[in-house]
Design a protein around this nucleic acid. Structure first.
Lengths: 262, 262
DNA sequence: CGCCAGGTTGATTTCGCTCAAGCAATGTGG
DNA sequence: CCACATTGCTTGAGCGAAATCAACCTGGCG
């Protein structure tokens, strides 16, 4: 489980179970039991009959880009399972600062922490791309947890993993220079969004706006712009719109690797 | 569980179960089953026979102030249960920044997150005061978890609660001014360490050095000194050594309350 | 064509860090 | 019991990274 072990910090694995993207052209099954992603996900444990039980109450919805799936301070309804698309988890504090944390990929779950904690959602989930998301109602989750100690164990493992003290450190403003935080974000995004360009170049099509990026590294958009320009001028990476070409991956890794000994 | 619901953020409840201090003069029972703190703790679930099972492998140790109980990057051995004294959880990153998070009080547990995550300890636990700490070995924990779904549920609840996205925000350097972070820390410490002075004044005997405080709010000791002096000059609170007298609680609450809508 | 949100750029300010020195409390050995 | 080291705290001066404020682009869309 959560063996989405990248070489970097699991900053953005909010209950990651797998990373492979679904084939968008394939017909979408209507049930959890027929979901081709279940096997490798958190829910691989379920027996055929249990999955069938889930099917009865599972809710599926499609979201357009920018739509919110659940909202900060909402009462948790259950566990959300992303079938396709990418979701951003972010929150806003009393100062009006938006902080992004957590990018949820296909096959991954979200919203479970608040459910287990019996607290209102601490974050808002926004679709970064068109998404299909299933909601497994809390009641069913509880039933399953009751019946399957192994599942509880699995969730325990997951929750314990995805939010460590680690978390806090990346956001420490002045101590970890913005440059490093930004590079780190790039490396994380690379894991999920990079393809190889025609000339063998590493290309990332960012799912995030500048503002989102700013929110994720805890900075202002203006500052991001400047930091990006620096990287550009140094010939480390080229930014054009949301398209990033990594010129010197070694440099990025150098910075991130040296600074980050987790 | 974890109904240590203060009016503020549960920043420092690392698996808090209760807050009442043990009577130091009472004779210390040697076993978990006879521990007068068990009832109200995480382990209240255990039946008599289960507790007896725990007794067989439970390890108890006394620590002097300043001693470390477990160390960052150690392999987790099990769950630590603080019988008496206070423990600070802190970690050091690749930049050499020390960050304090989490204060563990009598009756509370620590070290469980790493155990469940099957990761090395992300933090070091240091005794702030003389302490008595029991270690419940991982093997036993696993046995109990297997046998008692309710216990697993309880831990799930606990882990989900004590580290939310909330975490990250308090440490965001420039966005939440140091002043606010410091005040927030004071309010949290108040919950646990405040007594009422002879003249009805609220007095906190801090268990932390200035350096520790600095580490906890993510700042340098020098800056803490200055911030403290400010509060002093404004007549909000008086600091003499580790003794703090809260002069204007309303002011503190005002700042914290307004800024903190969690 | 003109609107408008999102992005860029520049000028200025600010908060907290860095470096450096002084001071107070505690402890240690002669 | 005193000289001296050690450790933690305080104070000051200067600096720097990023926030803030304020224009000004730019590209997509009605």
């Amino acid at each position: 489980m959560t063996d989405t072990q990248t070489s970097h910090v699991p900053l953005f694995s909010s209950g990651a179970e797998m990373g492979s993207r679904p084939n968008p052209s394939r017909r979408i099954p209507l049930t959890c039991s027929a979901c081709e992603m279940r096997e490798e996900s958190m829910w691989g444990e379920l027996t055929r009959s249990e999955a069938a039980l889930v099917d009865q109450t599972l809710q599926r919805r499609a979201y357009r880009r920018g739509e919110t799936i659940f909202h900060q301070d909402d009462e948790p309804l259950g566990i959300y399972c992303v079938r396709s698309g990418y979701v951003l988890l972010w929150r806003i504090d009393a100062f009006g600062n938006e902080t992004g944390f957590g990018l949820v990929a296909p096959g991954e779950n979200m919203g479970y922490r608040s459910l287990f904690a019996e607290e209102r959602h601490a974050a808002t989930a926004r679709a970064l791309t068109p998404c299909q998301v299933c909601l497994m109602p809390g009641a069913i989750v509880n039933q399953l947890l009751e019946a399957k100690p192994a599942l509880a164990r699995r969730f325990l493992h997951m929750v314990a993993r995805d939010r460590g003290p680690t978390y806090a450190l990346l956001l420490r403003g002045q101590h970890v220079p913005l440059r490093v935080r930004l590079i780190h974000l790039l490396l994380v995004l690379k894991e999920r969004f990079a393809r190889t360009g025609k000339d063998g170049q590493l290309v990332i099509e960012l799912p995030l706006s500048r503002q989102d990026i700013a929110a994720m590294v805890g900075a202002r958009p203006e500052t991001i712009t400047r930091a990006i320009r620096e990287l550009d001028e140094e010939g480390v990476a080229t930014f054009r719109g949301r398209r990033v070409e990594i010129k010197r991956l070694d440099r990025l890794l150098e910075v991130a690797g040296a600074e980050w000994v987790d």
